[in-house]
């Protein structure tokens, strides 16, 4: 192969380069197309979807550099340069947004992440198969239920006039709390929903890793006189270490990903001070503004967020590769 290549190069030096080097390429493509015709056909939907639905919106981001008019469209609107980006850095609200976004993300990471691990550890100690199965099945049922239903249920239960939670609070002689409208309660409620909806689901991965542990290890430990806690901490926990690290890295990478559905369903103007995060603000500015929607500004804000998120995911992916010997992609 190498020699052949050399020869072509040699001939090319004698001014016949272009037709001779191109021809085999063309032929190769032809041959490849013929041989893999069906393969390319199978790939077609994927390519079309990639171009239209994944690159299309990326192209649409140019409106961040335009004075976008809904009527004139992406191609017809006039150019605005970096106007909107400059505005972002002068907009005091942006700091608040960034703060809200990060607090919510860190909070849900710190609180949500350990719960499935603890749950899985204790679930693993249940030796009665029926109870084990029953508990696990019920625990990830909420994952199936939509945010709309979950939020509806939460608000019904927390209703200050007739919800069960406030009935209990009132029974204890305290005044009812207006959870739905309280900025201070927004974050706890968001995180609570996140836990409720995902802990059973996340635990499945850990439980699976635990079942893969060789029973001989436990038996050996038992012979050495280890009790439950020792086994749990020294055999079970290390067995899921790789999964834990991987999941943690994924969670860090996704720190900018909030459950937009859930916030949009939960929030109202009285909790904006804590509930408004970058994504909801972008949504609000475009789809819920009572003035003219500023599509360009919203896109510019989102573009900056996307760049930050992109860098973060790339870094964590590297970290995963290094520390967990696994990659997200």
């Amino acid at each position: 192969m190498k020699k052949k290549g050399m020869k072509i190069l040699g001939k090319g030096n004698k001014a016949v380069t272009i037709p001779l080097t191109k021809k085999p390429l063309k032929q190769r493509i032809k041959k490849d197309l013929k041989k893999n015709r069906q393969l390319y056909l199978l790939l077609l939907p994927g390519i079309i979807s990639l171009i239209l639905f994944k690159f299309g919106p990326l192209f649409g981001m140019v409106i961040a550099f335009e004075n976008f008019s809904a009527f004139k469209g992406i191609l017809g609107s006039e150019w605005a340069g970096f106007k909107w980006f400059i505005k972002i850095f002068h907009d005091p609200y942006m700091l608040k947004l960034l703060k809200n976004t990060i607090i919510l993300a860190v909070l849900s990471l710190v609180v949500v992440f350990p719960i499935p691990i603890i749950f899985a550890l204790f679930l693993n100690e249940i030796k009665q198969k029926a109870i084990h199965g029953f508990v696990q099945s019920l625990s990830f049922l909420p994952y199936f239920i939509s945010s709309a239903v979950m939020v509806s249920i939460l608000f019904t239960m927390l209703s200050p006039t007739n919800g069960i939670v406030n009935n209990l609070i009132k029974a204890m002689g305290k005044t009812a709390i207006h959870f739905q409208a309280s900025p201070a309660w927004f974050r706890p409620m968001y995180v609570f929903l996140q836990v409720w909806q995902t802990f059973g689901y996340s635990a499945v991965i850990y439980i699976a890793a635990m079942t893969a542990v060789d029973p001989a290890l436990y038996e050996a430990a038992e012979v050495d006189g280890a009790n439950r806690w020792v086994k749990m901490l020294h055999i079970t926990l290390p067995s899921i270490a790789v999964s834990v690290i991987t999941m943690f890295i994924i969670s860090v990478g996704n720190i900018f990903t909030v459950d937009l559905d859930r916030i949009l369903l939960m929030y109202n103007s009285s909790v904006y001070s804590t509930a408004d995060v970058i994504q909801t603000y972008v949504y609000r500015i475009a789809f819920e503004s009572s003035g003219f929607p500023n599509y360009s500004y919203g896109t510019a804000v989102n573009l900056l967020k996307s760049i930050l998120a992109f860098i973060l995911v790339m870094l964590t992916n590297k970290a995963a590769d290094k520390y967990a010997e696994t990659r997200l992609f």
């Binding site: 949504y283 760049i307 998120a309 992609f329």
Partner: peptide, 15 residues
């Protein structure tokens, strides 16, 4: 395209 999100506004306009 998965990691770098275009966001809902361009998505809305293009779709």
């Amino acid at each position: 395209t998965w990691v770098f999100e275009a966001g809902i506004i361009p998505q809305y306009i293009v779709y």
